[in-house]
Design a protein around this nucleic acid. Structure first.
Length: 313
DNA sequence: GGCCCTCTTTAGGGCCTT
């Protein structure tokens, strides 16, 4: 079972659903179809968010209770109709039909595959903080994406990298990471299949994204679910060779995007844009290297397996 | 900081992430 083949319809959807992102919108499930959503106009709204989540713990019978009641900024950015031309709209209609027809394939996946990316205030997992989180479920469909800015409660000094400034984050309606955890857990459980793990995918995740995420959970004194597995596309990409059989000099996400001729549809170094790029790269990468989902699972690791997450580091 | 490569392993430089 290759990732590119089972995702065929969904990757096409990805290309067309780039604007179908949501910030904490997952708490409100829409009854609208994908097609109807695509026709929605761009809009921004702010509404009170109050949620209590019972978190499943890795320890049997143990549950953690989270309670949040904050007025959070909810930004819903959906694709405008003028973005799509008629042939693309017709294609979307057919893809929607395709997805409904083959929705049963979801039960055959060995794991929920979530591609994610973070933006941070710097490279130090101990001194810096996550300021943006974005994730996309490869299964696609309604609420398949999730993204939010995060108040790091410290100055952002690398705005020139991602364009995220203090004024965008230091607001009472932007959640802190502790506020986000129960919402994130709820999102993941809404996507997770019974008895199957969640496979998080990130580029350079082993050294960067996963330790960052782990330490944010640790700071908030919340245990990361034991059935969360991670896979890093960087060492996988290092297996690629050029036309002369030599290894690539660079396997950055940007170079991989260029290699596979993936169009840049937004600002690089924004979390959801990089997630979208990585979704395409993952498809191309697994196809080129003939990697299956079970093989990806074999390459996975837990956050606690990493040397970076040991207490003495 | 972790990983990979090589002019290497008793080391050092470069890539990759923000």
């Amino acid at each position: 079972m290759s990732l590119s083949s089972i995702c065929c319809g969904n990757f096409h959807l990805l290309r067309n659903l780039i604007g179908n992102t949501c910030n904490i919108r997952l708490l409100k499930y829409h009854s609208r179809s994908i097609f109807e959503t695509l026709l929605s106009i761009r809009r921004h709204q702010s509404r009170p968010l109050s949620t209590t989540v019972l978190a499943r713990s890795t320890r049997k019978g143990s549950k953690q209770s989270f309670s949040n009641s904050r007025h959070l900024h909810v930004e819903s950015v959906e694709s405008s109709i003028e973005v799509f031309k008629q042939p693309e709209l017709e294609q979307l209609k057919s893809l929607h039909t395709y997805k409904e027809k083959f929705s049963g394939v979801k039960t055959e996946w060995p794991a929920t595959i979530l591609v994610f990316d973070i933006e941070t205030t710097g490279f130090s997992r101990r001194e810096d903080r996550i300021i943006e989180f974005a994730v996309r479920d490869l299964m696609g469909g309604k609420n398949s994406t999730f993204q939010t800015l995060i108040n790091p409660e410290k100055d952002v000094r690398n705005t020139y990298i991602h364009g995220i400034s203090n004024s965008m984050l230091c607001r009472p309606d932007v959640p802190r990471f502790g506020d986000l955890i129960p919402i994130l857990l709820q999102y993941v459980w809404s996507r997770q299949m019974d008895g199957k793990p969640v496979l998080w995918v990130a580029h350079n995740g082993r050294s960067f994204d996963v330790p960052f995420l782990f330490f944010e959970f640790q700071r908030c004194k919340v245990e990361m679910p034991g059935d969360w597995l991670f896979v890093d596309t960087l060492p996988i990409a290092r297996q690629l060779v050029d036309s002369e059989g030599s290894k690539l000099s660079s396997v950055s996400l940007e170079k991989l995007r260029e290699r596979y001729k993936i169009p840049l549809t937004g600002s690089a170094h924004r979390a959801m844009q990089d997630v979208t790029t990585l979704c395409y790269v993952l498809q191309k990468l697994t196809f080129e290297l003939k990697l299956t989902v079970p093989q990806l699972l074999e390459k996975s690791f837990r956050a606690t397996d990493l040397p970076a997450t040991r207490s003495d580091k």
